[in-house]
Design a protein around this nucleic acid. Structure first.
Lengths: 191, 191
DNA sequence: GAGTACATGTAAAACGTTACATGATTGC
DNA sequence: GCAATCATGTAACGTTTTACATGTACTC
């Protein structure tokens, strides 16, 4: 029953919001979950099949002309139950963290200071872009204005990521300062 | 030349700090880099071999009795060069983010509020543990007090992660508040 | 005419962890 | 006596992405 496979639950979760095709699921994840989750088609289509095999979802095929037929998936009661059980289970596995930026920075004593500063500036730029994306998402989410509880949980997850990037942007500024300062640390001691 | 493989550079980076065996590299990564990187033996040993094949490192075997022989790896000039080039290259790939906690929270409108609050409290607990681990690391890093530049970069990377968890802990408190409040949203409007 | 959106699906490749095998020594 | 530390290495397994195949319709 592969309780480990998180993609499974991600798919069930999206289906909870309403029936959808694999294609639509991909889009939903990209739009609303991209700041903390992603799935490729290589995961989505085979897993949707398995969902049906295990009675967690049903399919209806909508015949189309010109385009491939649409396979519209809906969550079943059993699917809802399995998802709910998972949602309430405490998280045990803390999967590997990998941050390429920090890996580089950690070993950066061997490159010129200017280069390190440049890397940090680029990282800050990237974080600014992400924070702007979040701001747009927030507006979109508020505009959609569905059920109040749904909005609450979307808002909470968005705030989590937003706060994280904001913190990182502040860190970038600090970091640039500290690196600049270390260029000429003697001056301050001389005065 | 597999420029994609980040493990490669992680190994080179650790070897930059001094010659080491695969076993010691694992320990170093676990102690100092664990908050942003990890490597398993299944990655370390085969990649160390490849490092030697590509002249980025050399091995010396130290014969031991009772234990397996030690293979001590040292970085070569070419290794240093390859590492430095990578350090200065801008980061292009932003690998998949996967946050199981947020995935659960996003879909939590379908479980009782109390359960969601419990999940957030557990997440906060985890973050507190991590922040304490960071505080210890900071002390250890200061105590080692090697070269000043080395200390600077370690301190910077640590602060990055530290600030991130601190932000998340604050978010947890906020989040718990907001969830508690949504239990009885009517009261406030009634008054 | 090129590119994008719609729509599904698979095979190959890369990536990464876990578990196993081996085996002495030291501390509880 | 059991667990942990030291030390290396591989095979199996699972996960995940990428690239490919297919094909219409619409927009620039």
């Amino acid at each position: 029953m592969s309780r480990e496979n998180k993609s499974f639950y991600a798919l069930l979760g999206v289906l909870l919001l309403g029936p959808a095709t694999g294609y639509e699921i991909k889009q939903t994840i990209e739009k609303w979950l991209s700041h903390f989750w992603c799935e490729s088609y290589g995961q989505i289509y085979p897993n949707l099949k398995r969902l049906v095999e295990e009675n967690l979802a049903t399919v209806k095929t909508e015949v189309q002309v010109g385009k491939p037929n649409k396979n519209i998936y809906s969550i079943t009661d059993r699917g809802r139950q399995v998802l709910t059980e998972w949602l309430m289970k405490p998280i045990v596995s803390h999967p590997p963290v990998k941050n390429e930026f920090l890996l580089k920075l950690f070993f950066s004593q061997s490159i010129p200071l200017e280069e390190s500063i440049e890397q940090v500036k680029q990282h800050k730029q990237k974080m600014l872009e992400i924070s702007m994306f979040f701001e747009h998402l927030k507006i979109d989410a508020a505009a959609q204005c569905q059920e109040e509880t749904e909005t609450l949980y979307r808002s909470l997850t968005l705030d989590y990521s937003y706060r994280a990037v904001k913190g990182i942007i502040e860190w970038c500024d600090d970091c640039i300062h500290r690196l600049e300062k270390s260029k000429s640390p003697v001056k301050e001691e001389v005065r």
